[in-house]
Each structure stands twice: as structure tokens, then as C-alpha cells.
Design a protein around this nucleic acid. Sequence first.
DNA 1: CACTATCCTGACCGATCGGCCAGTTTTCAA
DNA 2: TTGAAAACTGGCCGATCGGTCAGGATAGTG
Lengths: 184, 184
Amino acid sequence: MAATTPARERTRREIEQQAMTLFVSRGYDATSLQDIATAAGCSKATVLYHFNGKPAVLAAVLEPSRIALNDLIDQAAGMPAAAAQEFALTRFVELAVEFRGLINVLQDLLSTMEQYPEFADLITAGMRMTEILAGGTDDQLEIDLAKFAINGLLGECRHPGDRTDAELHTLCDTALRRILRLNR
Amino acid sequence: MAATTPARERTRREIEQQAMTLFVSRGYDATSLQDIATAAGCSKATVLYHFNGKPAVLAAVLEPSRIALNDLIDQAAGMPAAAAQEFALTRFVELAVEFRGLINVLQDLLSTMEQYPEFADLITAGMRMTEILAGGTDDQLEIDLAKFAINGLLGECRHPGDRTDAELHTLCDTALRRILRLNR
DNA sequence: CACTATCCTGACCGATCGGCCAGTTTTCAA
DNA sequence: TTGAAAACTGGCCGATCGGTCAGGATAGTG
């Protein structure tokens, strides 16, 4: 009882891992609990034994990226607007490249996501990112342009093609700086 | 027999109209044939009597925008690269605003769309648009930036919020010109 | 009026979905 | 070793999906 039971954690991790792979390659809706169970080498009932429903599996898969995004926002919160803008742009591009596969999943669910309260803070995090990237301006057009930039970045990471991480990184960095008029 | 039977056309149009509304508001997958039938005031069997399966309903809904996009590309094909780029940017933004609701539907299906041959030319049309917007350059980064711009535009039109057509138009036009470095 | 082609529908089908539960197997500490 | 807690599973449930079919309603025409 001193440490967490190894069996529980091992199975949980395996389910999470396989679910992530499937969500990334086929999307959330197109992946059934049976698909996840088969890939993880257990039964569908076991998946539901470890996770309280299908959305809970998604929440677990998204957890690392959620934490990373919130950290980024928290760090930027303690900076002056201009520095926060530059910092957020750099880190956000890095995160987008790192978690590029998951962006597919997020875009799939943007319309239905509001139903699930467990993803509410992800929405608000996206809005905070927009404000930071806009550089704290009042100009509505600039704020909308920041949204535009995020949309472009997310869309680009959805269809990575055969681009390497470095190429994708350069592309997103260049595009964001052009839209936001931030020359390095 | 001289003209098309009015009853047939009337029902078809009603089904198309209601299907478009539902596809736009909920997405393609989340809209069932029963939803369409109920909204159109007929039975699900009637929908399948007029359309050869659910994808055929989608194809009918997308037809006007498909024609408009192909016309745009055909017109641009007969211009020098610089003029085509300027022309395509202007017209593409107009089309995106006009058909902004349908973009939701397209994004939903980008991953599954390749399965249906009836939508194959829509994919190729998108790639042609990219080349034209890139201004016929060889620079891969510029081509990728054009893709980025299209992604941003599509993403922005997905969540129009309470923006008017004019505001959305200005936003997309500005963003595309910044990314592509095309100052008016 | 009667007949026929067209339009339309209720009922049904097989498949798949997320989720639930009673009961079996495994694990692990006393 | 043993017994209870934890982990796991087969089987089932209700709902929903796209699609089919035989036959009823309807409308236009001779």
C-alpha cells in the first residue's frame, strides 16, 4: 500500500498510450472503446474500469499538453506585454510542434467540446493565448489577427505531411511573425 | 414529361436546404439522415429515394461552392502569375465569406474525404489555390506559407462569432496580405 | 373515370456504439 | 498458505446509425 499498485498504473498507461495513437490517427469520434481495448490488449470493460467513460480517456490523453499550455500562460502572465508576446510566440510554436498530433483531436472536438466541463479551461486557455499573442493591444483587428494566426498554426500542424519538426517550426514561426508584424 | 416534374424538384430542394443548415450547425457526421428528413418534413426513406446515400446529399449541398471555386481557378489559370495571385486572393476571400458555413463541413471531413471519389477534385482544387496564392514561386517556404494562410482563413471562417461579413472580409484580406507580403 | 408512372413511407435489417453488471481471475499482504 | 481486495472480463442492454424493400398514396393523362 506504500506505493501505487503497479498493475493498475501499468494498465492505465498502456490504455492511455494506445488511445493517444488511435485518437491522433483516426480522431476521437472515429475511435471506439473497443478499438482502444484491442490495441491495449484488454477488454472494453477494462477500459471503462480504469476510466469513467470515453471523455475521461480523452482528458487523460490531453493532460500533458494541457499542463504545458497552462504553464506557458502562467509564465507569460508575469511579464510585460511585449516580452510576454515574444515569449508566448516562441514557446507556443514549440508546443504546437511537440504536440502536433493531438491538435487533430482538438480540432475534431471544438464544436462538441463545450459540453464537457473537463475541457472548459482548455477553451479559456486558448483565449488567453490569443490576448497574449496580440501583445495586449486594444485594436480588435490585431486581436482577430492573432486568432487567425493560431488557427493557421493549428491547421498546419494537423496535416504535417512529411515535414520534419524543424521545418514545421520554421514555417509556423515565420507565419506568426509576419501576421503579427514581429520581426526577429 | 416535357419539363422536370415539379414535385420531385421541390422535395429535392427542400432536403438540400435543410441538410445544408444542419451540416453547417452540427457538422456532417453529427447529422443523421433522420435529422434531415424531420427538418425537411419527410421520411428518411424519402431522403434516400432522392439521394443515393448520405454522401450524395453532401455532394449536392457542396455543389454551388464547388462550381464557384473551380470557376475561380479556371479564370486565374489564364493570367500571369502576379495578376493571378492578386485576383485569387481577392476572390478567394469573397468566396470564403460567402460560403463560410460550409467550411465547417469541409474541415470535418478532410480526413475521411479522400475515401469518396466525388470529392477528389475538391482536394486538387485546394492544392491549385495554394500554388496560385504562392504566386508561382519555387520557394517551398512561400508555398507552405500560402497553405498556412488558407488554413488560417478556413479556421477563422469556422468560428465566425458575431462578426459581420464585412469584418470577416477585412480580417481575412489583411491576414493573407501580411502572410504573403502582398501590400495593396 | 380509370390507369399508370411517380412519389412517398412504415417497418425492418444488420452493424456499431457507449456503458453496465455479475461473476471470475489475479494479486498481495498478513 | 490463505483470504480478502483489486483487477479484469463475457455477455448483455438500449439507442442510433445508414440503408433496403414491399406496398400505399398521389398526381397527371388518355
